[in-house]
Design a protein around this nucleic acid. Structure first.
Lengths: 132, 132
DNA sequence: GTAATTGCAAAAGATTTGCCCCATT
DNA sequence: AATGGGGCAAATCTTTTGCAATTAC
């Protein structure tokens, strides 16, 4: 792994990620970052996200409905709930069962590096519009 | 939902999907389909895959490592194992726990339409190269 | 000083779409 | 005959990359 430098751009991107609970897209991070560094480029945002992902500092989530990738600062293991109506992405607890799952019965699996659980449906806001 | 016609193209695409256990990409399906309908177009493959997906006949899987979508004819509920070395995608059983999971503890979830479980790691072929 | 990083713009890759003709119903 | 679907090519969208200038170390 290459030596990594502490650029202002990288710091700002990380801060945005840490402070946002919204699982922003690269584009959203870009717009946010421009408020601090007006001439930061989208390419830089992508390059930094990739770099941070490789360092394990950031996780990339590819929504099953085909939109752009969304990113989050890495905290505890958790699963995601994706509302197909408002397109919201929400952290939810990872069932304990999965934290220790072995999948020993599947001979083809030699080693597990990570487990992604995505629950798709509609959130309570979208399901009960009268509460808006 | 629009009325759907039985075109030769759609039939061939479905057959390919049913017969292949490889979770092919649109491009792979296209190449395969051309052996039967030499002038079928890639656009047609995509349009049919979308249409079949909307009908619930086909499932689309977006690999977490960022490549193109992969498709499968819909059978029993199952999870996927993704080998990051050979890029293989494998059906694995869905833990029974998840088949009936309710996630009652997450107030934000109003309704669940589907659950995607992806296990990422390396398969036995890739882990033990001496057995090749 | 050196190598990583940036901004910019062009390129690449995947998927969608407009248009006009053809085929299924 | 009506209209959904097909082929082709152009367009779109997201992400990556080449390059020359800049900056962190």
């Amino acid at each position: 792994m290459k030596k990594s430098r502490n650029t202002r751009q990288r710091g700002v991107i990380l801060d945005i990620l840490k402070e946002s609970g919204a699982h922003p897209t690269a584009e959203m991070i870009y717009r946010e970052a421009r408020r601090v560094i007006p001439n930061i480029s989208l390419g830089t945002v992508y390059r930094n996200l990739n770099c941070l992902r490789e360092q394990g500092v950031v996780r990339e989530i590819r929504p099953s409905d085909g939109g752009s990738s969304r990113f989050e600062g890495l905290h505890m293991p958790h699963a995601h709930f994706h509302c197909t109506r408002c397109n919201g992405l929400l952290d939810i607890p990872l069932p304990e069962f999965l934290e220790t799952a072995r999948f020993d019965d599947v001979a083809k699996i030699a080693a597990i590096s990570s487990i992604d659980l995505h629950v798709i449906g509609s959130c309570s806001n979208c399901a009960s519009p009268e509460t808006h």
